[in-house]
Design a protein around this nucleic acid. Sequence first.
DNA 1: TTCCAGGGTAACG
DNA 2: CGTTACCATGGA
Length: 307
Amino acid sequence: MGGYQGSVTLQAGPIYLATPPEFDFEQCLAYLTRSADECLHQVEGQAVFKALPVEGGRPTLCKLTEDAGRLQLSFLNGQPDKLAQEAAMDYVRQWFDLQTDLSVFYRIAAQDKVLGLLTQTYYGLRLIGIPDLFEALCWAIIGQQINVAFAYIVKRRFVEAFGERLDYQEMSHWLFPEPKVVAGLRIDDLRPLQFSARKAEYIIGLAQLLAQGELSQDKLQQLHDFEQMQAALVQLRGIGRWTANYVLMRCFRHPRAFPIDDVGLHNAVRLAYQLQDKPAIEEIQTLFEPWAGWEAYATFYLWRALI
DNA sequence: TTCCAGGGTAACG
DNA sequence: CGTTACCATGGA
């Protein structure tokens, strides 16, 4: 390869993304390594590897590192075309929520003793997104009412059973199953992976809606209004208030998304504020009032303390 | 064995 | 609208 910069049409080598001031790649990596059963990305040292789907083409294997205050995005299995490069950059921006200005949140958080400490301890941690809607929906539903460790195991089985594998130099990388594949499954196909019948039903149903185009990321995004997006999600079978807000938070990165019914959040609040019992919903509402507009980040930082 | 874990639906007042 | 029964599954 020596010497050449690549063809005229394809820019060779890595591409770079600017990062916001309140950004710490290591804090983000720490979050990404929270489960050994995570199969949709791989962290090695100061790098993350992730396979991304390419519209009408072979998936691309990405390597993300930090370089001189920027994010460096390298393509390991061949240089994708311009469109795929843009898509990969866009994915990374959503994955690490790069477009949000955290300075306001940090200023508000500093007013509170506990959240102020959390934002210092995990300074630069971004809300880690799940940019793909189907993946976000499935992950939320899998995680309903079971502990996170078990949820990771179920997700891994699901991905390894119905997702695409990309092998590269002794390493295997996985892509999340496509809706059109899951749409054709039966409940009994998922039971052996230890899905409950109910969850299997929810996920297959949502896959069918997505495959048919009745539900899509664009359609939800175009509703624009937070309440409308929430209502549209809750209307779907298997999605209640918690799941809707979880998806608005992780997939759409809506700063107001607030899974207030979350048991983990309740435990995090009890732990962080050293409460005797788990707080009531009203107490959490009161606690979060000063952080209005930033509920998603406040929740994410409280969750972070549970890892 | 009981209780908990990043809930949801349906039925009932 | 707020409650309550029921569903489901593994781990501590």
